[in-house]
Amino acid sequence: MLTSPEALLAIFGMALVTFAIKAGGLLLATRLPRTGFAAAWLKHMPGAVMASLVAPALVTGSAAEAIAAAATALVFFVSRNLFAAMAVGVLTVYFARLALAA
């Protein structure tokens, strides 16, 4: 399967809004809020979206997922490396599931 009309529509839509925002920031530079409530709201959006992705997956998971999440966080704090953190998380969940199932 190469692609589908639905996938193309979604990707082109994502590309269009992303480019509109990036170019819009430059063109509207003098009219945008640099400080204050709206600027603070925009600034916090990426972190809040990431937290929203992680939280439900962690509360609905088993003990194995909770242990693996702690291992992922620990490795990331020590190494600051996304790759290492993800690899340790996956390995931990694999062994924790084996251990808890036994």
Partner: peptide, 28 residues
């Protein structure tokens, strides 16, 4: 393809990328 959430995908890209308004404005 039939269950691809096109609207949420585009909306999510919009919300996650809104911060670029502030970033690219500083490049003026």
């Amino acid at each position: 393809p039939a269950s691809l959430p096109i609207g949420p995908l585009i909306l999510a890209a919009l919300i996650v990328n809104l911060r670029y308004l502030l970033l690219t404005a500083t490049l003026r």
